[in-house]
Design a protein around this nucleic acid. Structure first.
Lengths: 221, 221
DNA sequence: ACGGCACCTGTCCGATCGGACAGGGGGCGC
DNA sequence: GCGCCCCCTGTCCGATCGGACAGGTGCCGT
């Protein structure tokens, strides 16, 4: 909104560290940011460990963080985010990631991120977001904001299953019949039906096929 | 293997067009490529339509293509790939995408791509791949190559469905019953069963739940 | 000791599904 | 025209599923 109010050069350039496992992306970001007189890229990192070290050394005011470090889980990026913001409460972490994942937006915030933008925002929007988080504000692009709203509302997400139900759900999701599941778990077909009915009730589904569909949405498969 | 044999400067710089919906990525690529004396970025595009026009105008020898254009399906990028390679048989399309999707590797090749690398390869590997496809060779990073091997073996991958079967498969995958599907498509329940049986036969599945499972693996959902 | 919970089992029944018949219609290539 | 394929429809039947009964066991916390 008031992006143009700071026409004066700030006391000092904003010191930025880039964390992304893609060298290409780091290059692109650097070339964009270094055109701005009030921004300065003081470090890069491609892994969580490296990032922690670089931040420790360069003491930036902003970290641009891609949560999808390595091919592994998002946990690594989220953990890094939490560690950085705990050790440096003034540090502004702006998550800059490729795809929009509703649950990831929420988790990022819970882990201390101050903003979340996807990489296909245009350049000016990115710069605006950077300056916003530097001012202790928050920054979300429209998609991420929408994801937040979605995540806020609905949630009885993943309605708590018992141990046994999770077993059954797994096999159910793989297309096994009640009889087959019973064979695998050494329980009677009747018992399987008992669990399946409870799963369907909790998922508000009305057929095993729908259960498989919901399971695939929830990433159970 | 023989990457160093062309120490002489080629007759002319390789003309390259970048196609990626992320401005950041285009920037990064451009800054990397323009450091090389034998490479020249002659155009950029962020959409399929734009890409077709830019290629028509600039006549590059290489297109670096991100298949995931927009948030939509991969179809757009694949279609573009097919169109480009059909109209310009000498054009080398190198797919440069973020994530590795086994089936996408195969489809990219079937749609005329000459190489497939994921964005987290290092810079030298990317340059090597670009020069390889320019020489009419192929280029796959190790992950993509592994994906190809995987895809080669087992596969009667995605066994060719008819139009109608794809409709039914969609709804099947969302957990609808035969009756409901019939209602949606304005056909009788019997006909739905006819299609469902054909789908199950083609997928080698023995229940609709298994179909949903397979569909989720194939990314139909 | 008692209630609560997760887990297990059975019977009975109507609805749905999976599969095998046996057809008819339209489009397309040879 | 003829064959081929896709699409549509019906009937009949056994298997499975979805759901409603009515139970029994063992663990845990109060």
């Amino acid at each position: 909104m008031t992006t143009e109010q700071q026409t004066h050069v700030p006391t000092q350039a904003l010191r930025i560290v880039l964390v992304d496992d893609h060298a290409i992306v780091r290059h692109g970001l650097r070339s964009i940011l270094e055109r701005e007189s009030d921004l300065e890229v003081v470090g890069e990192a491609s892994t969580a460990a490296e990032a922690a070290a670089v931040v420790e050394r360069t003491r930036p005011s902003i970290v641009l963080l891609d949560l999808k470090l390595s091919t592994a889980a998002d946990t690594e990026g989220l953990d890094l985010c939490a560690r950085l913001t705990q050790r440096h409460p003034d540090l502004a972490v702006l998550v800059l990631t490729t795809f929009l994942d509703d649950s990831l937006v929420v988790e990022a915030i819970q882990h201390g991120a101050r903003g979340y933008v996807v990489k296909d925002v245009d350049t000016t929007e990115l710069l605006r977001s950077i300056r916003a988080v530097a001012r202790n504000e928050s920054a979300f692009d429209s998609h991420a904001a929408a994801a937040m709203v979605r995540s806020m509302r609905v949630q009885p997400l993943r309605p708590k299953f018992t141990e046994r139900e999770l077993n059954v759900l797994q096999m159910l999701a793989h297309g096994l019949s009640n009889r087959e599941i019973g064979g695998e778990l050494y329980i009677s077909e009747t018992t399987v039906k008992f669990h399946v009915r409870n799963i369907m009730r909790k998922m508000d589904a009305s057929s095993r096929a729908e259960v498989v569909y919901e399971a695939s949405k929830l990433g159970v498969i």
